[in-house]
């Protein structure tokens, strides 16, 4: 019987300092054969272990089409993440993956795509944007809206820059508080909606960020006429096992770790707790 709680040892290949409190770790499994066979989908997550410290869930932030390594992007919020930030290239962590469901990539083909990300909500969406851009012709208009607290809080600045160079992607960024070097938009991410052309009849919207942001984004999308099943988001909960057993992430009779983390607004609305 497979041991669902035993992690695979993974080696850190690269570490990118994204912001003052967020790093991206590029990992590959120590077991070469396992690494070879390993694959995942956009929206899925890993349980990452530091032995002696603990285990915590992180969404993939890399392009699933790129085999051999995968990324997770980690902001310091607690004990496990603090310890992770002390790791160096060549150090190891335990990984159980892939876990959870995934973004409806196939089902979104033929639609325009709207991405609305806030702060540390961008990494899991990056894992969606990149394979979509690999098959750019499969989708219509492509719009990315990104908001952060300050310019210094922006994750994946290199990728944001690369996407903004593309003619087939519309990208707008905003910050709550600007600094002297910021010449783009100021305000919460929903204030960008009036600056872009979105046709709710032909668009699938993906949003990820702090719970309060998601709530306002969904409200606005509904006002714009988006059907509930074409508003896609991810839910976050305190999580331990990642396999639907420990009970921590339950909302109603759904478990964020196995029934999610990706939910349409239509599914979210039915959950008995908000």
């Amino acid at each position: 019987m497979e041991n669902i709680y035993l992690p695979q040892v993974a080696v850190i290949q690269d570490i990118i300092d994204e912001t003052y409190d967020a790093k991206t770790f590029t990992l590959s499994f120590e077991d070469k054969a396992y690494n070879e066979k390993f694959s995942y989908k956009s929206g899925q997550f890993v349980e990452a272990s530091l032995f002696g410290v603990g285990e915590a869930p992180f969404g993939f932030s890399s392009n699933p089409n790129h085999k051999g390594t995968f990324d997770i992007t980690v902001r310091v919020v607690g004990r496990v993440t603090e310890a992770m930030h002390r790791l160096k290239v060549g150090d190891t962590m335990g990984i159980r993956a892939p876990l959870g469901n995934s973004f409806p990539l196939e089902e979104s083909k033929g639609f325009d795509i709207l991405i609305v990300a806030g702060g540390i909500g961008l990494p899991p969406l990056k894992s969606l944007i990149e394979p979509m851009l690999d098959a750019r012709d499969d989708y219509g208009e492509f719009t990315i809206l990104y908001g952060a607290r300050t310019p210094k809080d922006r994750i994946h600045t290199k990728e944001l820059e690369a996407w903004s160079q593309r003619k087939d992607v519309t990208i707008m960024q905003t910050v709550d508080q600007a600094d002297d070097n910021w010449d783009e938009h100021v305000g919460v991410v929903t204030t960008l909606f009036e600056n872009v052309k979105i046709d709710s009849k032909t668009t699938v919207a993906f949003t990820c960020g702090p719970p309060i942001m998601i709530r306002f984004v969904i409200q606005d999308l509904l006002t714009m006429g988006f059907p509930e099943d074409r508003i896609i988001s991810t839910l976050e909960r305190y999580m331990k096992c990642g396999v639907g057993k420990c009970g921590h992430c339950a909302i109603g009779h759904k478990y964020v770790c196995v029934d999610g983390p990706v939910f349409s607004y239509k599914q979210m609305k039915r959950l008995p707790e908000k």
């Binding site: 002696g52 410290v53 603990g54 285990e55 331990k240 096992c241 057993k245 009970g247 921590h248």
Partner: peptide, 10 residues
Amino acid sequence: CTCYDVQDTM
């Protein structure tokens, strides 16, 4: 009831 927590100790 089945809920559990997970911890590491040295």
